[in-house]
Nucleic acid binder design. Structure first.
Length: 482
RNA sequence: GCGCCGUUAGCUCAAUCGGCAGAGCAGCUGACUCUUAAUCAGCAGGUUGAAGGUUCGAUUCCUUCACGGCGUACCA
């Protein structure tokens, strides 16, 4: 039937209900139990939820009522309900109702509530997606996520799992003495990562501002201020491509601990993720320390491998010297990688790493010790100034974490920033962040810092193939006149 | 940005080589007081994403556009 006619049909019922003197959008309704707990209830129950199926039998009818906890069958009989049964006849799938009644078992043993009172709490004016096949159209799923949540129970489970994951991260960090803080999302200089920022404008101040690409530089100012262990879980924004691993706004955990270093950060990252497994979150797809991600078994049993970038490049790509442009180029050409010729040695290194090494990093690996030039905020290794104490954590071939021993030498930091500015590459800072250096110059304790991509971690733990499956409202192109 | 694929009823999907656009669910009418993917009888439901072209004839072939997916580029 044409959508218009379906809407007219619902409109007709809505008018009939109003005609009968019933306001179709009710108010407070005190429930005695969630649907899932009806079996344990003594005496009558009061329930509310959405009508998801209806099976009419003339002077009686069964319906399934769904609330957050689950579904329960309810039974309407004309001889019990009298004129209220007429209201039942005007209900549609999708309506939200409250009922009170007596639990019983049907002949086949199905737990059911025999309805004694019926309250219409919200009339639904549009048809819901189909009950059996659910809602599959990904565009509708993302644009109208509420329909996805109604029609697809596993989607609901993923987002509940995500909420629990985040809350348990907070719980764990709080227990370990970390202080949760909130730092600016609008920055005068976009720093703390290399990424193209979104630009916005403050009218009264008459100044452009950048949506933050990372909270890092503000969190470290707090270390200067004596807040020794801080963390923030919130959005960062990067004006870059969209892919199954990238959404323009995404959620990061960043934490900093004074007097620690990147080795401590590795322990924290490992401990945190294992803790999430241990706490048995429904929807987290684990058995023991193993998770299955997209058909691949991943063993997260500690200790996780720690290998230097240099060793891994040797192991998987046969590269002996990370800084040998010719060697990297030869290897990439052999792989048939498309190159423009304008790549720096570090671009080549990164490309080759992504091509040859990253896909092999299925079990968790801390990739340790990166070139200084691509890590301007990390502290050099004492024995090798060109290499910094930094790791990236890879699981299932996916980068989920990044950590440093934080650079706390203001003069060295200024040189690193100045070098970036001098190189003048697109999307890199055009000015030295003197305000940050000012903070460092008051003395920042040595510290370890760790960032974890929450969206990707949730993908891993809930076995979702795309970041859009773990973000409630992923960015899509606007539909009309955008 | 670029490349490939997709878009058919409210939802899930069919439609042979270019030859009358179809089914299930949802909806409507009737029957039915223990059904549960209720059942039975009947009815209705379409700008085939949009615009243009080729053709006697286009869901099908071509062009452009919109939106989405994947890949790629970008992304320390």
């Amino acid at each position: 039937m044409a959508e218009k006619e379906l809407l007219q049909e619902r409109e007709r019922k809505l008018r009939a209900i109003i005609q009968a003197g019933i306001y179709p959008y009710g108010g407070r309704f005190d429930r005695s139990v969630p649907a899932r707990e009806v079996a344990d209830a003594a005496g009558d129950v009061r329930l509310a939820g959405r009508v998801v199926t209806m099976r009419n039998h003339g002077k009686a009818a069964f319906a399934d009522l769904e609330d957050l906890s689950g579904r329960i069958q309810v039974y309407f009989q004309q001889d019990v309900l009298g004129s209220v049964f007429d209201l039942y006849r005007l209900l549609d799938i999708g309506d939200i109702i409250g009922i009170s009644g007596e639990p019983f078992r049907t002949r086949t043993g199905q737990l059911t509530v025999k309805v004694k009172e019926l309250t219409l709490l919200s009339k639904s004016n549009r048809p819901l997606p189909e009950k059996w096949h659910g809602l599959k159209d990904v565009e509708i799923r993302f644009r109208q996520r509420y329909l996805d949540l109604i029609a697809n129970p596993e989607v609901r489970e993923v987002f509940i799992a995500r909420s629990l994951i985040v809350s348990r991260i907070r719980q764990r960090l709080n227990e370990e003495g970390f202080l949760e803080v909130e730092t600016p999302m609008m920055h005068p200089i976009a720093g703390g990562a290399e990424a193209r920022p979104f630009v916005t404008h403050h009218n009264t101040l008459g100044t452009d501002l950048y949506l933050r690409i990372a909270p890092e530089l503000y969190l470290k100012r707090l270390l200067v201020g004596g807040l020794e262990k801080v963390y923030e879980i919130n959005r960062s924004f990067r004006n870059e491509g969209i892919s199954p691993l990238h959404n323009p706004e995404f959620t990061m955990l960043e934490l900093y601990a004074a007097y620690a270093d990147y080795n401590v950060m590795a322990e924290i990252a490992e401990g945190l993720i294992l803790y999430l497994l241990e706490t048995n979150i429904p929807g987290v797809n684990r058995s023991g320390n193993r998770v299955n991600y997209q058909g691949v078994e991943i063993d997260l049993s500690p200790p996780w491998r720690r290998a230097t970038l240099s060793d891994l490049m040797k192991e998987h790509a046969g590269i002996v010297d990370l800084r040998n442009q010719g060697e990297l180029l030869t290897c990439l050409q052999k792989e048939g990688a498309p190159l423009t010729g304008a790549e720096t040695v570090f671009d080549l290194l990164d490309t080759l790493f992504k091509l040859k090494v990253q896909p092999k990093l299925v079990s968790p690996v801390f990739v340790m010790d990166y070139p200084r030039e691509i890590s301007p905020l990390a502290k050099s290794k004492p024995e090798d100034v060109k290499t910094v104490e930094r790791f990236e954590l890879f699981i299932a071939g996916m980068e989920v974490g990044n950590a440093y021993s934080e650079l706390n030498d203001p003069e060295e930091q200024r040189r690193r920033f100045a070098e970036e500015v001098k190189n003048n590459r697109p999307d890199r800072p055009k000015v030295v962040d003197e305000d940050y250096i000012l903070a460092l110059s008051y003395g920042m304790p040595p510290a370890g810092g760790l960032g974890i991509g929450i969206d990707r971690l949730v993908m891993l733990l809930t076995n979702r193939p795309s970041i859009r499956e773990v973000i409630l409202f992923p960015l899509l192109r606007p539909q009309n006149g955008g």
